[in-house]
């Protein structure tokens, strides 16, 4: 037998802990915001995670699925998630009201290398629901604003109504210590004051960047990556400083079930944050 590491008796990798939905509301027609706290206060305060990590949410009876954490560890106690209704688990989750109990386990994945990013400039490029995982690192950088150089955000959504956390982004536009550019593919309201076009159309509006000193963080629908990466490469941002957080079907979250395996790595262990360098060397990533 090749028994390794911790003794199985202590390990409970698959057991979710009860957590309470303390707040939930619609961000868009099919995306809901969930603010959650572990029922056990000790657990709630000791839950350490990094921006970019994810958790497994259980709606007992319906199942379990992975969701990126949208809150920041710099505001401990409550966990936040932005979730689109898509499958069995999310449909069940959408039916739950405030004060309902769910199961939660994690955090999982590598997260963003916030230590390495300290002192550097940050360029965040968001497409649609990509705002969910990137909100964690955005809020983290705002909470620790003095630890980072320039911060810029480019966010593209399909329609104004589908831009999640609109208010948060509009208030960012008022700040002088960061840059924020917003776009929608199509304005069906007639009241949109920002730009119209896909997210890549925002790049020309970005002020001159200090490429070797910049970390670009990207998340959006699968189709978006190659176009955004092209722009980032054009800006001469180093390949290992172009970071993207990717979605994969997952069941266990702990590198066993095989669903999220790509090449010789598991997205749940070695991802979901990958560099453009990884993308070049590992096929099937994007």
């Amino acid at each position: 037998m090749n028994v390794q590491d911790k003794s199985p008796a202590e390990a409970k990798p698959f057991k979710p802990e009860p957590a309470r939905i303390v707040r939930t509301y619609h961000l868009t027609e099919d995306v809901k915001f969930f603010q959650v706290r572990f029922v056990d206060m000790q657990k709630a305060l000791s839950f350490n995670y990094k921006p970019g990590q994810f958790a497994m949410i259980s709606v007992l009876g319906a199942g379990e699925a992975p969701f990126s954490i949208s809150s920041t560890p710099s505001r401990p106690g409550l966990l936040e998630f932005c979730i689109r209704r898509a499958g069995t688990v999310t449909n069940a989750l959408f039916r739950l009201k405030e004060n309902s109990l769910i199961g939660l386990r994690g955090p999982y994945g590598n997260g963003f290398p916030v230590e390495a990013m300290t002192g550097k400039d940050i360029l965040i490029v968001v497409g649609g629901l990509g705002a969910a995982p990137l909100r964690s690192v955005l809020l983290y950088s705002l909470d620790n604003r003095d630890q980072f150089g320039r911060v810029a955000v480019l966010y593209g959504a399909k329609r104004p109504a589908e831009m999640i956390f609109r208010e948060e982004y509009f208030s960012l536009k008022q700040r002088s210590d960061l840059e924020c550019h917003l776009a929608v593919d199509a304005d069906d309201t007639g009241k949109w004051t920002e730009r119209v076009g896909v997210v890549t159309t925002l790049f020309p509006h970005l002020r001159q960047i200090d490429a070797p000193n910049t970390y670009a963080l990207v998340c959006g629908p699968p189709v978006m990556y190659k176009f955004v990466i092209k722009e980032l490469v054009k800006l001469a941002i180093p390949k290992n400083q172009i970071l993207m957080t990717l979605e994969r079907r997952m069941k266990c979250g702990v590198g066993k079930c095989g669903h999220c395996a790509i090449d010789y790595i598991y997205t749940c262990l070695d991802g979901p944050v990958f560099t453009y360098w990884d993308v070049i060397h590992m096929r099937e990533l994007i």
Binding site: N2, V3, P8, A9, A11, P13, G255, L269
Partner: peptide, 22 residues
Amino acid sequence: VSLLDRVFSGDFVDPYYWARRK
């Protein structure tokens, strides 16, 4: 089975597998 031993070990030890395997 010895290959499975490797898979179900590592950073996350699978308690169900090892309860039987041992």
